[in-house]
């Protein structure tokens, strides 16, 4: 029983961290219509910067500034924000499939840099030498995980509430106005490019926070953590949960990550012994089929966006997830 609780605490921590990143993406895609194909670059920037700033000195790479943990985490968010600003200035005027591939390229370039620049980030063997905050006081075990979960959940709630307010604010309305009809928004004297950049940077800072927490939890980060599969996972969570809806984003995260891990567990337990070696492959087939099935059954996501409009000037917006261009 204690094992089950211990596992659930662990699972919830990882899922909550991912949920924060999904919320960041929801601001960019769900509310602003920016197709960010490079989520993992901003997540990774947060993770690497947090460990570099907060870690102990290491002989062979940059870092070991031993900053006070909250400062290191803020530094990680800042790093993600700076990267997003740079990328945003260069690419946000692109049409969205072009934007997707351009940002995807940024993520690949980020991973490549981390893998090769040993002096900067430890190279392929990754970045270590980070002391988890409060480890001395709490030890390494269940208590630590419980306290860390509380910390992560608090931040998840803070981000959730912040985004909820942001979306209901005049700024949030402007985001949706630009998403739906850029020309109209422009004609009303708004500056779409500035607003979009703000949303892009804000979303990326939130992803950077998620990355920082992720690296803190494992006290380690390596190029293997920032492969494109993570971008895909985070997108799948948003699409399944419901783009444009924050509650949906969180729900989608728990469902996809839960399904991802539970399918592996179930196969290891119930598949016949001769088939055990093939379960990894079978699991990927299942994951693919779940995603396809979901899109065939409910493409708008489990909790679709509820449009907050003061007066409806448009016909019903049925195909939320993709009809804009």
């Amino acid at each position: 029983m204690i094992g089950v609780i211990s596992y659930l605490v662990f699972f919830t921590t990882v899922a909550s961290i991912l949920a924060i990143a999904v919320l960041g993406l929801n601001l960019q895609w769900g509310n602003t219509g920016l197709f960010n194909g490079g989520v993992v670059a901003f997540f990774g920037a947060g993770a690497y910067a947090t460990l570099i700033l907060g870690g102990t000195p290491q002989a062979d790479h940059l870092g070991g500034f031993e900053l006070f943990y909250p400062l290191a985490l803020l530094g990680g968010m800042l790093a993600a924000g700076l990267l997003a600003w740079l990328v945003g200035v260069l690419t946000l005027r692109l049409r969205h499939d072009y934007l997707a591939i351009a940002t995807f390229g940024v993520a690949v370039a980020f991973e490549t840099l981390m893998r090769n620049a040993e002096g900067l980030a430890g190279g392929a063997k990754g970045l270590r030498g980070f002391e988890r905050p409060l480890r001395e006081a709490l030890g390494d075990g269940f208590t630590y995980n419980l306290v860390f979960l509380a910390f992560v959940l608090t931040l998840l709630i803070v981000v959730y509430v912040f985004l909820g307010r942001l979306i209901r604010s005049p700024f949030g309305r402007m985001l949706r106005a630009i998403r739906e009809d850029e020309v109209a928004a422009k004609s009303l004297g708004k500056s779409p490019s500035r607003v979009r950049l703000t949303a892009f940077v804000t979303g990326s800072v939130i992803m950077g926070l998620a990355g920082g927490l992720y690296a803190t939890f494992y006290a380690f980060i390596s190029p293997q953590d920032v492969l494109p599969i993570l971008t895909f996972q985070i997108w799948a969570m948003l699409i399944v949960g419901g783009a444009g809806n924050n509650a949906g984003a969180v729900l989608g995260t728990f469902i996809i990550w839960g399904g991802w891990t539970a399918s592996g567990w179930a196969l290891s337990r119930f598949a016949p012994i001769e088939a055990q070696l093939y379960t990894g492959t079978v699991q990927f087939i299942l994951i693919g089929m779940i995603i396809v099935g979901m899109l065939m059954w409910r493409p708008q996501g489990l909790l679709p966006e509820r449009l907050v409009v003061s007066q409806s000037g448009k016909p019903e917006n049925k195909h939320k997830t993709g009809s804009r261009r």
Partner: peptide
């Protein structure tokens, strides 16, 4: 039933 992005993910 879905939009462009549904297709991408499918």
């Amino acid at each position: 039933i879905g939009g462009e992005l549904s297709m991408v993910f499918a």
